[in-house]
Write a protein that binds this DNA or RNA. Structure first.
Lengths: 244, 244
DNA sequence: CCAGTACACTGGTCTGACCAGTAGCCCAGA
DNA sequence: TCTGGGCTACTGGTCAGACCAGTGTACTGG
């Protein structure tokens, strides 16, 4: 006979569970409002501090947002990758996840995104991607270029039609950028850097337009490797080459 | 001239930030203890409710754990993918992420894990994998088989040497299993199902042993497809075939 | 019709209290 | 010597009540 470990279920956890359930089941839609804390405490039959702790947890998970003074009460938020991003960030800092591992992971994700995008892209997707590329070419300054670059990758990921690829791509790009942004912003010749990237992106886009998934994936991975390999410690670069 | 949006920084957030920083910088190692709440409130110069809300947030992020009655105070936890898993779970429920998207994502991750594993595996890895496969073969009953299956995939991921692949693989497998476990447990002929899976895993392992990354990846993706495609709605199966 | 102002109410924080439950200690009994 | 049972000091969980800064809204006077 097997027994299960018994864990006390605290009052605030039951409140979290109830509200979470209401959000996920769709009974509470984004934009709708929860009752105020004083109202909630009568509905749940608990003290205000208990209600507040429950709301804090939900707030940390980015399910709700509450602002003082708003008589409409806490707002139910739309799902966003923010919490996911923070979790992954934490894990990346805690485990020994360096740029090499992040880049390897990004090569996997971006490669697959491009592969799928090339096979699923519609004409509308292509014109969106053309616009994104044009925005990169027209960018004035590095910061703007970087934003346009992110937007381009995001557009590719959305073309792959898989929200998980979109979100995890977003997350990993964010973490990578954060790790090397200071190195990049101090790079000696950012203009030629931007030109190289632009050329890479144009090549990739042509492969996507030609519906050549394998090439698109390979080009995307190669571009990532070429652009970032210099920031990877030499003894870790062997991790990346198997993916080329 | 450009201004930044100003957001009020609450007291509990500053406490969270300080403790988070201490954990990430390594000043607080897993297993160590934080002072009790009453002690923290004097150190931070705030009321207990403020301290508690901060601890609640850290607890929701699985950075600490506190139990009543323990005079040693809240415990600093080792990094775990638990929070990441919950975040992804939430997002999967909120976005319209169905089995098709999850499976597609898993084919991407598992495929890459196998590719890397085949190229990086050592003899020690191979014997670990052999053991995992033997455990699957020796499994008595579906539940045990399923656990052994998960362990095998986990071993493959670890052989790929990328913690991100390990964690996201773990997460996605968990979500997939949760979505279809009831269908699987009611499957008419689970014995032949398990035999099929076992054969697939043996093939994959041979490719890994032969250091044939491309084959290992392809076999792994094909195995996923074969095993799960029947649970994917027919009109979504086109998402999966480009990855074969 | 609009700017300005009051007001009711929100969430953020503090204080002080009580409770159930735990770790660690001491001590009686084997 | 070891073991089990209390005892105790303390923990975190919860509640109640209070105050404050700041917000949305409705009312006001121009």
């Amino acid at each position: 006979m097997q027994f299960e470990p018994v864990a006390p279920v605290h009052a605030y956890q039951r409140i979290v569970a109830q509200i979470e359930e209401a959000v996920y089941s769709g009974r509470l839609k984004p934009g709708e409002r929860l009752p105020g804390e004083r109202e909630l405490m009568t509905q749940f039959g608990v003290g205000r501090s208990t209600v507040r702790e429950a709301l804090r947890v939900l707030q940390a998970a980015e399910l709700i947002r509450s602002r003082p003074g708003d008589p409409r009460g806490p707002e139910v938020l739309a799902a966003s990758p923010g919490a996911l991003q923070r979790s992954m960030h934490r894990l990346a800092r805690a485990e020994h996840v360096g740029l090499a591992e992040l880049l390897q992971f990004r090569m996997v994700l971006d490669g697959s995104s491009h592969l799928l995008a090339a096979q699923l892209r519609t004409d509308a997707d292509l014109s969106t991607l053309d616009e994104a590329l044009a925005a990169m070419a027209a960018a004035d300054g590095y910061a703007e270029f970087s934003r346009a670059d992110v937007a381009f990758h995001d557009a590719i990921a959305r073309t792959s039609r898989n929200p998980l690829l979109v979100v995890s791509g977003e997350v990993v790009r964010g973490v990578v950028l954060e790790l090397i942004e200071d190195k990049l912003s101090h790079a000696p010749d950012r203009t030629s850097l931007m030109e190289t990237w632009l050329r890479h992106h144009a090549e990739v886009l042509e492969a996507v337009r030609a519906a050549d998934g394998a090439s698109a994936a390979r080009l995307a991975r190669q571009a990532l490797y070429d652009n970032y390999v210099e920031y990877v410690p030499e003894d870790r670069r062997a991790l990346l080459t198997p993916l080329l």
